[in-house]
Design a protein around this nucleic acid. Structure first.
Length: 481
RNA sequence: GGCCCCAUCGUCUAACGGUUAGGACACAAGCUUUUCAAGCUUGGAACCCGGGUUCGAUUCCCGGUGGGGUCACCA
């Protein structure tokens, strides 16, 4: 089968984690099967439309590496991928239904409908548009709301690729609106027409649509169209599991994760594992791995919570896998211009990659570290209180100065080719063992960094170089008197 | 409330009738080459409840409970 999937957001704002996951699964499945992914914009509710959303949605998907064959700027053989530009199709199908006796113009005003609903509410029963259907009706003028004349109130059973046999009943069926008073189709109608016209074979959707499936099915029946395969995804819950993740309660714009220093591959990796698993213990995947392994029958039925802590762990795993060049590229976006310039001037930027990499989970942490001055001492001689050099083990100034002078003289014996972390460590270690690690290593490290918390002295020394290392140590010893 | 869906450690999950119920995140302790990270080792931690079916149920069936969803001229 030639697979065609679609992701069909409404342009009502940004994309959150939940909608991204739906898009991702549709993408993975299409890609895996050399199929087609259509990005369809469902903009039939003018009131809710938010300016710029279409671009924002595309930016989000692109950032995540999710690409599509047909979209807002790439019409398909079926025409535009934006519903507001497909009005002719909806009118045509509406007319077809009307002519076949499956639809009729709504004779009531919105006020009357509201009154019906109020009555139902007072009688504590759900409002369904059933016994309000007029005996006879005029031809459709194309302006009045058009209602579907549901052929039969019955129980529907269908098969879902994830959930298996599902059923829902008559309670969901009534003469629902096909075309609204403003001339636009409803979602219920438009998505069915489009999926049909676009040849969609698999609908990846959230599970909130299960309960309205009987409506869709009754419409497919009336249209004489075979429904696509439903692939219903489990919900993503808030981290407290109290409800489905949604824009209303805190779900944020997925692009915010970019600002916060997350890698798109980490987001994709983590999201793929909420509601799907490869059937093995492996967890860290590249996008290519995911495409290769993805399959519908490993999709989960039950909902899963979105846990940002685990996302951070995935982010770290992917940061660890970045090439130094890529790491630097991302890091550049989070370091101050001054820090970058200082480090580059002394040729230290590349040397710091392993150090930076092992200390962060998100790139935003690099920004925090930078602002806290945790990189400044590499390029600039640190200024610090002399007392900081004294360790708990060795509070005596004169003795600390002696230790430092010994370290300096031992290191000065090394030539440039020996100036690397391992050799520096070997040179100092026996002395540190003899005099007490704290008594030697603490002042050594503090002399180089001027900070009570920093990477170890050997790595710092190897980064800033022999000359600078000796200068800093001698300076420290001199200040101690 | 009616209807629908779901149910394994705190969280994400493995198991497709027989396992000491596995892994990962998180957490705790210990180790490690001063500190901060990282790393390593170890540890605690789950089959929602009740009935069936079966030689045997976490697994299959039914009921309950709990959670989620849905009842628009929104999608």
């Amino acid at each position: 089968m030639n697979v065609v999937t679609r992701f069909a957001p409404s342009p009502t704002g940004f994309m959150h984690i939940g909608s991204v996951r739906t898009a991702l699964f549709a993408y993975l499945f299409a890609k895996k099967n050399n199929g087609t992914l259509i990005l369809r914009i469902e903009d039939t509710d003018q009131a809710r439309e938010v300016e710029g959303s279409i671009q924002h949605i595309q930016d989000s998907l692109s950032w995540l590496g999710i690409d599509w064959q047909y979209g807002p700027e790439k019409p398909g053989p079926f025409g535009s991928c934006i519903q507001s530009e497909r009005m002719d199709s909806y009118r045509e199908f509406a007319k077809k239904l009307m002519d076949a006796g499956h639809a009729y113009p709504d004779p009531y005003t919105p006020e009357q409908i509201t009154a019906f609903r109020e009555t139902a509410k007072l009688e504590k029963r759900p409002f369904l548009f059933r016994d309000h259907r007029p005996e006879t009706f005029d031809a459709w003028d194309g302006k009045a709301p058009l209602r579907f004349k549901v052929p039969e109130i019955k129980r529907y059973k269908w098969n879902d690729a994830v959930r298996g046999e599902l059923e829902a009943g008559e309670e969901a069926l009534d003469d629902f609106i096909l075309m609204k008073g403003d001339g636009y189709p409803t979602y219920n109608f438009a998505h069915i027409v489009d999926d049909h016209l676009m040849g969609v074979t698999h609908i990846f959707r959230a599970d909130e649509f299960i309960s309205s499936t009987p409506r869709f099915l009754s419409l497919y029946d009336a249209l004489g169209v075979t429904p696509p395969i439903f692939v219903t995804l489990p919900p993503i819950l808030r981290d407290d599991r109290t409800k489905k993740l949604g824009k209303r309660d805190g779900a944020k714009d997925v692009l915010e994760y970019r600002t916060e220093g997350y890698l798109p591959e980490a987001i994709v990796n983590y999201l793929a594992l909420i509601g799907w698993n490869p059937g093995t213990d492996e967890e860290v995947f590249s996008q290519e791995d995911l495409v290769e392994r993805f399959s519908i029958d490993q999709i989960q039925k039950s909902g899963g919570a979105f846990d940002e802590t685990k996302l951070k762990w995935f982010n770290r795993e992917h940061i660890l896998r970045l090439t130094p060049e890529k790491f630097l590229h991302y890091a550049s976006g989070f370091l101050s211009a001054k820090t970058k310039a200082d480090l580059k001037k002394k040729n230290l930027f590349e040397k710091l990659v392993p150090l930076m990499r092992e200390r962060i989970q998100t790139f935003a942490e690099l920004k925090d570290m930078d602002e806290a001055g945790e990189f400044a001492f590499y390029a600039e001689t640190p200024v610090y209180p002399v007392g900081g050099l004294l360790s708990k083990d060795e509070p005596d100034k004169a003795k600390t100065a002696t230790r430092l002078r010994y370290v300096a003289s031992a290191l000065s014996a090394l030539n440039e080719s020996e100036w690397h972390e391992q050799k520096i460590k070997e040179t100092i270690w026996p002395y540190a063992e003899e005099k007490g690690r704290g008594a030697v290593l603490w002042p050594f490290r503090f002399a180089l960094s001027g900070r009570s918390k920093s990477p170890d002295p050997f790595i710092i020394a190897s980064i800033i170089g022999k000359k600078e290392t000796l200068a800093r140590i001698e300076d420290a010893a001199r200040n101690l008197g």
